[in-house]
């Protein structure tokens, strides 16, 4: 049976109004043509280096971008456009965020209360994350970094959300704790939730996720199955292949160059300046996304 698509983001663009040199106001396009979709019961890992737009995607979905952001494109939840009115109703209930920064917690409120008013639900959730009951009575500043993230995970669990967006949930955790947190996301997905896991730790993500959306300089270059990463030949986009080759367990071979900055992007394919298969064709226009071997790729030469 075809699983229902919970979240579908297509052709998302985000532009920031900025003050550049002096007093002039300008616009900085940080995301262009970003697409990703998550289905029921799966974990989609959103992988990319910092500045690839992965956190902004989460913020755009949740409507928590800063005031100077202009968003275009479609965001659909359960097949219907996610308007801000709908979002207000769903956020914190059906849609939950496990944020990147602990600053999302209210510093003046005990953490147990912040997770939920339902004490028993909080207790159960805390047990899953190996958090002691006494932690419920602590204030956010009294928690260690790893504990804080587990509290944030527990918050998402308690609400019984259908869509969980986890923004870099594991840095600061030890390997065991990170693995346990990932296992919980896996359990939640197996119970029917859709999980969007935003991470730069592609290594860890691959062990638990179903599909991977690879972001580069604010666009989606490839959507692959997690199993595709077992063999470089199964991967589609040159950037994804470069990621594979750079992993310590593979070749540990770095591709030269850096991701271009928003506002200073090359014409055409954004990866072209670092690509070994680049031709003049690549610099002419941004490649369209197309389906290839059960995945999506934005490269005219991918095969």
């Amino acid at each position: 049976m075809e699983k229902k698509t919970v979240l579908n983001v297509s052709n998302l663009s985000v532009t920031f109004r900025m003050y550049s040199k002096g007093m002039r106001k300008g616009g900085l396009k940080v995301i262009s043509n970003l697409s990703a979709s998550v289905r029921e019961g799966e974990i989609l890992a959103v992988a990319g280096s910092s500045g690839s737009g992965k956190s902004l995607l989460a913020h755009a979905v949740l409507g928590i971008l800063p005031r100077n952001a202009i968003v275009t494109g479609e965001i659909e939840y359960m097949g219907e456009a996610l308007t801000s009115a709908r979002l207000t109703k769903l956020r914190g209930r059906e849609i939950a965020l496990v944020p990147q920064s602990v600053e999302y917690l209210d510093p003046l409120m005990k953490v147990g209360k912040q997770v939920s008013d339902d004490k028993y639900a909080v207790k159960r959730a805390f047990e899953r994350y190996k958090l002691d009951e006494s932690v419920m009575k602590l204030f956010p500043f009294q928690l260690s970094g790893g504990m804080m993230r587990r509290v944030l995970c527990a918050t998402a669990v308690v609400t019984g959300a259908k869509l969980i967006i986890a923004d870099e949930p594991t840095p600061g955790m030890s390997e065991e704790l990170a693995a346990r947190a990932m296992k919980h996301f896996r359990d939640l997905a197996d119970a029917g939730a859709a999980v969007m896991l935003i991470t730069h730790d592609i290594d860890l993500a691959l062990r638990y996720c179903d599909r991977v959306a690879v972001f580069y300089a604010g666009t989606t270059v490839e959507t692959a199955l997690a199993s595709d990463f077992g063999n470089i030949d199964n991967l589609r986009h040159p950037y994804t292949k470069a990621l594979w080759r750079a992993m310590p367990q593979n070749d540990f071979a770095p591709t030269p160059g850096t991701q271009p900055y928003a506002g200073n992007l090359p014409d055409g394919c954004l990866f072209a300046p670092r690509c070994d298969r680049v031709t003049e064709e690549c610099t002419r226009a941004a490649p369209e996304s197309r389906t290839l071997r059960n995945g999506e790729v934005s490269c005219i030469y991918a095969d």
């Binding site: 003050y19 007093m23 002039r24 106001k25 300008g26 616009g27 396009k29 900055y261 506002g263 200073n264």
Partner: peptide, 15 residues
């Protein structure tokens, strides 16, 4: 950082 500066808005900005 170099930026592509889009036309400034008519409304004076806060800064």
């Amino acid at each position: 950082m170099k930026m592509k500066v889009l036309p400034a808005e008519k409304r004076p900005n806060r800064r």
